[in-house]
Computed example of a mutant assay.
Amino acid sequence: MTELWSWRIDRVRPVEVYPALAEALGRVVMPLAAADPSRLPAYAVICDVWQAPGEFATVVDCYGVPEGLGEHTSVAALARLLDRPCVLRDDTLDAGRHLLVTPDGTIRPVHFEVRETDDGEQLTDQRLCTLSHPGCRGWSQCHRSRWAPDSVVPALAAA
């Protein structure tokens, strides 16, 4: 079984992502535009990296991720190698709720305002997912997540 991972990185050029991603995953990383499925090594990961508007504007999609690689530990390794925070979707159905992964490997839930644009999804107005915010209290979807409001978890514990 293979997976699709989709992450966003804060202020990094796409050209910097490929070598860091290869090191973080311990795999060959092939850009989607250059990938020939008939010539790919079995352990290769195909990635598409592009710029979107808003915060965390560098988007990384990894296709065909081999089993055995942990998404949270992999994105934490990428954040450390690039020295940039990353975000990925969490386990709720809330389109604005993400997990923030910092270069020190800490993972915590955050919220963004999400707007669709002609150039892709735009994230703005980042805020922590915390019980002090009315949108995260009570019956919010935040409480249905394994990432409770105000949680701070090391990436290795999240694997």
Rank of each mutant, 00 (worst) to 15 (best):
Val153Ala: 02
Tyr63Val: 00
Arg39Leu: 11
Gly54Ser: 06
Arg27Met: 07
Ala42Met: 03
Leu81Trp: 07
Ala79Tyr: 04
Asp91Gly: 05
Val65Thr: 01
Val110Pro: 06
Gln141Pro: 13
Arg11Ala: 11
Leu81Ile: 04
Glu121Pro: 06
Val114Pro: 01
Val152Cys: 10
Leu81Tyr: 05
Gly68Ser: 06
Ser151Ala: 14
Glu67Ala: 13
Val87Asp: 00
Thr92Ile: 15
Pro66Lys: 04
Leu69Asp: 02
Thr124Arg: 14
Ala158Arg: 01
Glu113Asn: 14
Trp50Lys: 13
Asp94Ala: 04
Ala57Thr: 05
Thr124Lys: 13
Cys142Ser: 06
Asp150Met: 05
Arg89Leu: 08
Pro103Ser: 01
Met1Ala: 14
Thr102Asp: 06
Gln126His: 00
Asp119Ala: 15
His143Ile: 12
Ser140Phe: 02
Ala157Tyr: 07
Leu99His: 03
Asp118Phe: 03
His98Ala: 10
Ala79Asp: 00
Pro109Glu: 03
Asp48Phe: 15
Leu123Asp: 02
Val15Met: 08
Gly70Phe: 08
Val45Ser: 03
Thr117Arg: 07
Asp94Leu: 09
Pro31Ala: 09
Leu21Val: 10
Arg97Ser: 08
Arg144Val: 10
Tyr63Pro: 02
Ser145Cys: 13
Arg11Val: 09
Asp119Gly: 10
Leu88Cys: 13
Gln122Phe: 05
Ala20Pro: 00
Ala79Val: 10
Asp90Met: 06
Thr73Val: 14
Leu40Ile: 02
Arg80Pro: 05
Gln122Glu: 13
Ile46Asp: 08
Arg39Ala: 12
Val65Lys: 03
Ser132Met: 14
Gly64Thr: 03
Pro134Ala: 13
Glu23Thr: 15
Cys129Pro: 01
Gly54Tyr: 07
Arg146Ala: 10
His111Tyr: 10
Ala95Phe: 09
Leu32Glu: 12
Ala95Asp: 15
Cys129Val: 06
His72Trp: 11
Ile107Gln: 00
Gly68Leu: 02
Met30Trp: 13
Arg80Gly: 10
Ser151Pro: 04
Glu16Trp: 11
Glu3Arg: 12
Pro41Ala: 08
Pro53Ile: 04
Cys62Thr: 04
Glu116Leu: 13
Met30His: 15
Leu25Gln: 03
Glu116His: 07
Ala77Trp: 07
Ala22Ser: 10
Ser74Ala: 13
Cys129Trp: 05
Val17Ala: 05
Asp10Lys: 15
Leu93Asn: 09
Pro85Val: 00
Gly26Lys: 00
Glu71Gly: 15
Leu123Val: 03
Trp139Ser: 15
Arg137Ser: 14
Gly96Arg: 07
Leu78Thr: 03
Glu67Ile: 14
Glu55Met: 09
Leu131Asp: 10
Ala157Asp: 11
Val45Ile: 02
His72Lys: 13
Thr102Cys: 08
Asp91Ala: 09
Pro14Leu: 00
Thr2Asn: 10
Val60Ala: 00
Arg144Asp: 09
Gly138Ile: 07
Glu16Asn: 14
His133Leu: 15
Trp50Val: 11
Thr117Met: 01
Ala148Thr: 12
Glu113Cys: 13
Ala158Val: 04
Pro154His: 05
Leu21Pro: 04
Asp150Lys: 08
Arg137Cys: 12
Arg144Ile: 14
Trp147Leu: 04
Trp147Glu: 01
